[in-house]
Computed example of a mutant assay.
Amino acid sequence: MGTADTFIKNRLDERKASGIYRMLKPENSLVDFCSNDYLGFARSAMLKNNIVAEMAHYPDSLNGSTGSRLLSGNLKYAEELEQQIAIFHEAEAGLLFNSGYDANVGLFSSLPQKGHAIICDELIHASIIDGARLSHANRYTFRHNDLESLEGKLKQAKGNCYVVIESVYSMDGDTPPILGILQLTERYNANLIVDEAHAVGLYPAGLISELGLQNRIFARIVTFGKALGCHGAVVLGSNLLREYLINFARSFVYTTAASFHQLASVKMAYELLKEVDDEANVLRNYIFLFKQKLNNNSQYKLLPSDSAIQCIVVNSNGNAKHVSGQLQAAGLDVRAILSPTVATGTERIRICMHSFNTLEQVKLLTSTLNTITHAQ
């Protein structure tokens, strides 16, 4: 075995010994309480039929895009879709990326420069962290949702400053004090960037639009692989920002463009998103019911959240695996979130509520949780 293979094997063995070895698992027949398909778009027969109908209007469309958008892969359809999405979210412009990861890496690696500053909430998504690491800017983190901690970092920052938060955090499900953060950034002449990946759906156009703050935000990232049930992402901002990213965001410049089918899927998902009041209300009712029915059991802590993401902290990888195993044995697909994905001591069960779940399924989930004890 060569030195590289030895290194790989040793690292994997360390993970196995620590109980944090990751494995891919195929789909299953359990009741879905783990996916990000909050409104059921990914399984929607209506959306599927609408995509087929949209494709039929373009019989000459290619299977693949054939190249990057700066070479052969750009379509008038894609530019019109960007405009439609920007209008929906009340933004001046938008630029499509192939995934949320690509969008965040492209934005944060290209925009902040040497002498600038990026200030991130300590629980910000890994894709934002990776993008920021690729920049030459000074990087700071502030305590989760802590305005005093953020202000301390704003006082240290030099040059162009970008403050980065999520409107709904992916591993806690909570919402930051957005208005307070915005007021601080405005006081210190910083630019606020908000990742809306987990907010769109419960709030159709995202939480920023729901709060009426869209004209005061420098940029927003919206992903299509969660409540929209398809794939890709868009960075929303000014026309000037869009032009900049076309020229400098490497994950846009040097990648093959999305296929026509992907673009059509996104367009039809947005059309469906305009008509989801009933689904969103069902989702809100299930979230309320879940929190109401779950006992205040001192053995676990339900993190505060009004979003579709509900998390129970169980304090160790062993407990998280034990509780998720019990839930799966009851027919419920709920997954453990282990360290190092979350900080040691905050290992958890991450539960995602959906509009397509049934009342009986939500009750089964809460009754099962209420009877589970931690592993000894």
Rank of each mutant, 00 (worst) to 15 (best):
D13K: 13
A227Y: 08
F142E: 00
A91I: 07
I87W: 01
E27P: 12
K274L: 13
E27L: 15
A132Q: 03
T371P: 00
L47S: 03
Q299L: 11
Y300M: 07
A199F: 02
N357G: 04
D32I: 05
A343V: 11
M23E: 13
S209F: 04
M55Q: 15
E360M: 09
D5Q: 12
I309S: 04
N319T: 12
L228R: 09
T141G: 01
I309N: 04
A53M: 10
S305K: 01
D277G: 02
A86K: 03
A205T: 11
L245K: 05
E360W: 02
D37M: 07
F33T: 09
R250E: 08
Q328M: 15
Y203G: 05
V313I: 13
Q292V: 02
S72W: 06
L273G: 05
V168D: 00
K301L: 13
Q292L: 07
F288I: 14
S65L: 03
P112E: 04
A336W: 00
L154D: 09
I124D: 04
R242W: 05
I8T: 11
P304M: 01
I372K: 03
F290Q: 04
I193H: 01
V235E: 01
N104W: 02
K48T: 15
V200T: 06
L81T: 11
Y203T: 10
I128D: 01
I85F: 08
H374V: 14
N49G: 04
I165K: 01
S238Q: 10
D130F: 00
A56R: 11
Q376H: 11
M353H: 07
D333H: 11
S170K: 07
H89W: 07
G106C: 11
H322L: 10
H198C: 15
G180S: 05
E148P: 00
Q310M: 09
N145I: 05
K153P: 02
D174I: 05
E166M: 13
L75V: 08
V276Q: 11
M1K: 14
R335N: 15
V168E: 01
N160F: 02
L123Q: 03
D60A: 12
A56V: 02
Q299Y: 05
R350V: 04
C34I: 01
A249S: 09
S298A: 12
D172I: 13
L272G: 07
G2V: 05
N191P: 08
A258T: 06
V200H: 00
K25R: 13
F7E: 10
S367E: 15
N28L: 03
Y203D: 04
E271R: 12
V276I: 10
F260Q: 06
A205V: 08
V163C: 10
S68A: 14
I372Q: 02
N28I: 06
R139W: 04
I246E: 10
E148T: 11
L12F: 11
Y203A: 07
R69H: 02
A280Y: 01
T366E: 03
K301I: 14
R187T: 13
D174T: 14
K153M: 15
A190H: 07
I20D: 12
Q376P: 15
D277M: 00
N296E: 10
N145S: 12
M46C: 08
L202Y: 03
N319M: 11
P204I: 08
C230T: 15
V313S: 10
E54V: 08
R250W: 00
G67F: 05
K76G: 08
I87G: 01
A205E: 12
P204T: 06
A56E: 13
I119A: 11
E122S: 14
S316E: 06
R284G: 05
L111T: 06
T358W: 03
